[in-house]
Computed example of a mutant assay.
Amino acid sequence: MTVIVRALHLDNPADTEAFARVRRTCLPAMLATPASIAYDATHAHPGAHYRQLVAQTGAGEVIGTAQVGLAYDSPEPGQGYANVYVHPEHTGHGAGALLLRTAEEYLGRHGATEVHCWALDAPRNLAWAAARGYRASRSAHFLRLDLTVGPLPPRRATPPHVELRTASGYAKDPRPLFELDAEATSDEPGDIQAELTDYDQWLRDTWHHPLLSHELTTVAVVDGTPAAFTAALTDGDGRYMSGMTGTARAFRGRGLAKLAKNDSLHRARAAGVTVAYTGNDAGNEPMLAINKWFGYVLDATEIRHVRTLAH
């Protein structure tokens, strides 16, 4: 089979639809729509050098995708990433290898010294990454909750001085949510640490992103201060993903994240969402325990890999 790799054509609706379709097939938990794919490309930070690649057959069928860029918000420079996915019906034809090699060459030209990629926790996938010089690092779990079967944990009364609001209530001034997100993100476990310091970029990356549902995102507010939140991503086709759930340091240990997430899930189900996904670093025991309490079950595990580029 002839395979070529090229840049995604954002002006071609069939291209963005194919890109989203491959991503959904390979990893359903990572929501993707043609609109979100196009938005990611057109609103990326210049320092990310973000690029989307596709692998296609000689007949023009898109069978693989790659999201490539630099972690511009990391305090450690030179951290690149190449998230490669090949449709399971088209593996073994070299599409993944060609996507990864193209991504590495591109990142190297833009100053990357290391490239991070994910591989599903399966013998074939892990062997594929190892054969290309990647060493295994942290793992992450994707969890799934069927909202059409069984009850959610019942809502409970909010504690004194605590109020549950939606993100819609911050439409005029979302900066308090940016500050809460920045603090929670800085404590997230992972290989690449992120520092959210650019409010305008956060507005583009997060607040205005087409997948973010302001109506289903819940914020736990204590005496007027946003203390915990769960960000809800939806694709308009019955799928929901927890984009981020976190609590400000001063309010941890009070069950506020669980309270916010429960509220969001109840409202999501009432709005017609049928399946909810979430993802956690395998070492994030507190959040994994919360998700087990909700009834989430393991859907997939990925292991992050890293390779140092030779210059």
Rank of each mutant, 00 (worst) to 15 (best):
G238D: 08
A48S: 14
G169Q: 14
V86W: 13
A129E: 13
E302Q: 13
Y296T: 09
A41L: 11
A268S: 11
T225C: 00
D73K: 08
T278H: 15
P13L: 11
S242K: 07
G78W: 02
G255S: 06
P176K: 05
P77H: 00
Q193N: 04
V162T: 03
F142S: 13
D281R: 02
L120E: 13
P153E: 07
H49V: 10
G236E: 05
T245M: 09
D146W: 10
A228E: 05
P123S: 06
A112L: 00
A44E: 08
S137M: 09
Q193F: 02
R21Q: 15
L265S: 05
R204K: 14
A220Q: 09
L298G: 14
A194F: 14
T197H: 10
D200Y: 06
R144P: 00
E302R: 09
A260H: 07
M287P: 09
A82W: 12
F142V: 01
P34C: 01
W202L: 01
R267E: 04
A71C: 03
G246A: 06
T206F: 04
N262F: 02
A119N: 03
A300F: 12
C26M: 08
D200L: 03
G150N: 13
P210A: 01
T245R: 05
S168A: 09
G169H: 08
T25M: 10
L147K: 05
G255T: 04
E188P: 01
R165F: 01
G295L: 04
H43K: 11
P189G: 04
L143P: 01
A55G: 13
N83E: 15
M30S: 07
N125H: 15
V162I: 14
T158V: 04
E163V: 12
G111L: 02
A276T: 09
W128K: 08
L298C: 11
R304Q: 15
D200S: 11
N280G: 11
L53H: 13
P151G: 04
H266Q: 03
R21M: 08
A232G: 07
T230I: 13
D223F: 03
D237N: 10
G111W: 00
E105L: 07
H141Y: 13
L177Y: 04
L259I: 05
A82I: 07
R267W: 06
P176D: 00
G255D: 05
K258W: 01
A248S: 15
R132E: 10
R51K: 15
R267A: 01
E179C: 04
G111T: 00
A194I: 14
R249T: 15
P46G: 04
R267C: 01
T185E: 05
L309E: 06
G133P: 06
Y170T: 06
R23F: 00
S213C: 01
P46Y: 00
L288Q: 12
A182P: 06
V62L: 06
A276E: 09
R23P: 00
P75Y: 04
L53F: 12
V86P: 14
V297I: 12
A248E: 11
L27N: 00
R252E: 06
A97P: 06
V222N: 07
V275L: 08
L10R: 08
A250H: 11
A7T: 15
T301E: 13
A194Q: 14
L265N: 08
V62A: 05
Q201A: 07
Y296M: 11
W293Q: 07
H9N: 15
